[in-house]
Amino acid sequence: MNAIMTSEEMPQVAAPTAEREDLLRVDNVSLSFGGVKAITDISFDIKKGEIRAIIGPNGAGKTSMLNVINGFYHPQVGTITWQGQVRRKMKPYEAASQGIARTFQNVALFRGMTTLDNIMSGRSLKMRKNFFWQMMWYGPAREEEIEHRKKVEEIIDFLEIQAIRKTPVGRLPYGLQKRVELGRALAMEPDLLLLDEPMAGMNLEEKADMSRFILDVNQEFGTTIALIEHDMGVVMDLSDRVVVLDYGKKIADGPPEEVQASQAVIDAYLGVSH
């Protein structure tokens, strides 16, 4: 679990990204809070099966962008197309039930609950039996729960967190909490996984582990991933394509090598007066 593969060792998956189908399209989206413009006229797409990074200096509008995608913010201008259909205004839980899962920049778990229960809570949208049945925990409800538990155990195995299965997450170190949060998002079996700084505050080893998990999620489950990350090494190694924001505007979009070489990006990071 230690060595991160360099990008040239990484075997290329299926068709090149450009030819793949759009999972999500953002067209000319603008978002403002009162007079503050958080996002201005941004368009980009996320293809099925890719790892798409969103980067930019602090305050560039990255998290706002994620919040727009998962329906937490509603842009004043522009359209969002999800799996070929233009999306209407929706609540975050509607986005969740349509297959968009996310993790947060600051860990947002149920601190008093165990790892197992936290991940299990990610399954709640998939539970079909009503409250009464679940309370009785009998017959079909029980079968259903066993089915879900199996799925959750697969995720625990996948993320190698067996040892903390029954530990309340509040007692876990930060790196592990992040992993549990990823587990909860995976429990939804999402089509699109939004990761908001999955490696913030981690040490080198934890970052290496997390990178491997992200790659594995993408490969094993075919999950499309959009991630915000500040560690450029990680972004360049992991992502298929990168979109760069600065002051709410898109300043670059393309494969990592291309973006890295872009003068606009270099200026944004090194600071050029606007």
């Binding site: 075997p11 290329q12 998956v13 996948f158 491997r212 790659l215 594995d216 490969q219 094993e220």
Partner: peptide, 8 residues
């Protein structure tokens, strides 16, 4: 098997 699907 995990992570090895796309190896030669």
């Amino acid at each position: 098997t995990r992570g090895l699907r796309d190896y030669d």
